[in-house]
Nucleic acid binder design. Structure first.
Lengths: 189, 189
DNA sequence: GCCAGTGATGGGACTTGGTCTCATCGACCC
DNA sequence: GGGTCGATGAGACCAAGTCCCATCACTGGC
C-alpha cells in the first residue's frame, strides 16, 4: 500500500462523499472509506474524531465569521455586521469553484439524519460564536441572540439559493438579499 | 431477575439520568443503565433506538405545538399563534411538577456534546413542524420560517428562566414575556 | 553515502453501541 | 389446565471508536 501521498484528510473526505452518494451513509464502512483513499482505519481516526466529521471542516468558518463581525464599521447595527461577515464568508469559503462540491455534500447531509444531527450542532456552535462576537460589539444580550439567529436563517436561505443550479450569483449578494428579506419578514411577524 | 414491573421506559430513563449525573454520559454503559432499571440491554434497545434517545420524549411535544398553532384564532399573526402554542405546552408539558426533573435533565444535556447534538436535531425538527403549521395558516414561506425561528428562540429563553430556581412563574407567562422581548429585539436589529 | 531522529502510517487487540434471532416467561382467556 | 400473545432474556454478530506498538518514509548531520 503506497504511503506518503499528500493530503490524507482531503482524500478521505472525497472518498467518503463518493461512497455516501453511492451506497448511503450507514451502508458505508470507515474501512471502506480508508481503503478507497489508499489508507487504513487507524489513519482515518487520526484525522477525524468520528465518521460523521469527515464531511465537516475544522472550525475555519467560525474564525471568518467572528472576524467579519468584529471588523464591521462600528456604526453598523448587529444585522449589518452579520451581513458583512456573511459576505466575507462568500469571498473566502463559498467560492464559485466549491459550489458543486457544496451541493453534493449538502444533498448527502440532507439524506441522513446522523449527518443532519452533526450539522445542527455545528450551526448552533457557529450561532453561539456570532452571539459572542455581537456582544463584544456592544449589542445587548437579547439583541445579539436575535440577530445571530436571523443571520443564521439568512445564511441558510442564501446557501439554498446558491446551491440551486439555476442561480449563478455569488454567495455574498445572495446573503445580503436574504438578510434583507428576513429583516422584512421579522417586522411583520 | 424480576420481570413484568411497570413502565420499563420510565425506569430506564430515570436510571440513565441518575447514572449520567453520577459518572457522566460516556462513562455510563447501556448495560449499566439496564441493570439499574432491573432490565437488560435487549430491552433497553427495544424501547429506545439508541443510547441518547433515553433522555428524549417520543414526539408528544411536536403534536402539541402543531395543534396549538392550528387552533389559534385565525386573526392572530404568526408569532401570536406561536405564543398560544407555547402556552399550551406549558399547560400540558412544562408543568410545575416536572420542573426539577427538567432542570436535572437539561444540566446533563448541556454537559455532553453528544446529547446537545441530539437536542439540536430535535429542536430543528420541531421548528420544521412549526413552519409547516404556520404555512397551513396561510403565512408566506419566509414569514413562517422567521416566526418559527423567533418562537424557538423565545422557547429557549423561557425555558432557561423557568428552570432557574429563583423563578416560580409558570412556563406559559414566561413564554409570552420572552416572545414579546424577542419581538422587540427583532425590531431594532 | 550512512545513520539516527521524527512524524505519519499500519496492524491488531479491545470495549462499546447497536442489530438480529431465538428461547423463555408471565398474564390473560377459555 | 392448556393455548395464545406480548414483553423480556440470552447470546452471536458487526461496526464505531480507542489504544499501543511496530514500521516505514523523509530529514538532517556526519
Amino acid at each position: 500500500m503506497a504511503r506518503w501521498q499528500p493530503d490524507a484528510p482531503g482524500r478521505l473526505a472525497a472518498a467518503a462523499l463518493d461512497l455516501f452518494e453511492e451506497n448511503g451513509y450507514e451502508n458505508t464502512t470507515v474501512i471502506e472509506i480508508a481503503e478507497r483513499a489508499g489508507l487504513t482505519k487507524s489513519t482515518f481516526f487520526r484525522h477525524f474524531p468520528d465518521k460523521r466529521e469527515v464531511l465537516f471542516d475544522k472550525g475555519a468558518v467560525s474564525g471568518l465569521l467572528v472576524e467579519g463581525i468584529a471588523s464591521a464599521p462600528s456604526a453598523a447595527g448587529p444585522l449589518d455586521a452579520v451581513a458583512d461577515a456573511l459576505e466575507a464568508l462568500g469571498r473566502t469559503f463559498f467560492t464559485a469553484d466549491r459550489r458543486e462540491f457544496s451541493g453534493r455534500r449538502q444533498a448527502v447531509l440532507n439524506a441522513h439524519s446522523e449527518l443532519r444531527e452533526r450539522e445542527a450542532l455545528k450551526r448552533i456552535d457557529l450561532t453561539t460564536s456570532m452571539i459572542e462576537a455581537l456582544s463584544r460589539r456592544g449589542a445587548p444580550g437579547l439583541t445579539a441572540r436575535v440577530a445571530a439567529k436571523l443571520g443564521s436563517l439568512a445564511w441558510e436561505i442564501a446557501f439554498e439559493r446558491w446551491i440551486d443550479t439555476g442561480n449563478s450569483e455569488g454567495f455574498g449578494p445572495l446573503a445580503r438579499q436574504a438578510l434583507a428579506e428576513v429583516r422584512a419578514a421579522a417586522a411583520v411577524s
